[in-house]
Lab assay of single mutants.
Amino acid sequence: MIINNLKLIREKKKISQSELAALLESSRQTINGIEKNKYNPSLQLALKIAYYLNTPLEDIFQWQ
């Protein structure tokens, strides 16, 4: 199971779900699903999230 700190990191950087979704060329619903652990992002999307949040991938997503 993958757990994530996306919501915590996103809020700390003062970025809304909609703003992050626009940067990622994704939907706000996708970001919401990832944050609620209802959806696991593809590797490509996970890497883009890490890039746009300027945060190491392993700080956002962790195996448990």
Rank of each mutant, 00 (worst) to 15 (best):
M1D: 03
I2S: 08
I2Y: 11
N5I: 06
N5Y: 05
N5P: 01
L6N: 02
L6H: 01
L6A: 01
K7S: 07
K7C: 11
I9C: 10
I9L: 09
R10T: 03
R10D: 03
E11M: 11
E11P: 04
E11Q: 11
E11Y: 06
K12M: 14
K12W: 08
K12A: 14
K13C: 13
K13H: 12
K13W: 07
K13I: 07
K14S: 09
I15A: 02
I15S: 02
I15H: 04
Q17I: 14
Q17R: 07
S18F: 10
E19D: 11
E19N: 11
E19H: 11
L20K: 00
L20C: 04
A21H: 03
A21V: 03
A22K: 14
L24I: 15
L24D: 00
E25R: 14
S26Y: 08
S27A: 05
R28S: 13
Q29M: 10
T30F: 14
I31D: 00
N32I: 14
N32M: 13
N32A: 15
G33E: 15
G33A: 15
G33N: 15
G33K: 15
E35T: 02
E35M: 04
E35V: 03
K36C: 14
N37P: 02
K38G: 07
K38A: 12
K38N: 12
Y39P: 01
N40T: 15
N40C: 14
P41D: 01
P41K: 02
S42A: 05
S42K: 06
Q44G: 12
Q44N: 12
A46N: 04
A46Y: 04
A46Q: 06
A46T: 05
L47Q: 12
L47E: 13
L47A: 10
L47T: 11
K48I: 07
K48W: 05
K48G: 06
I49K: 00
A50T: 03
A50G: 03
Y51F: 14
Y51K: 10
Y52Q: 08
Y52D: 00
Y52G: 03
L53D: 01
N54T: 08
N54H: 11
T55Y: 05
T55F: 05
P56C: 08
L57S: 03
L57K: 01
E58P: 10
D59T: 08
I60V: 07
I60K: 04
Q62V: 14
W63D: 02
Q64V: 10
Q64R: 12
Q64T: 12
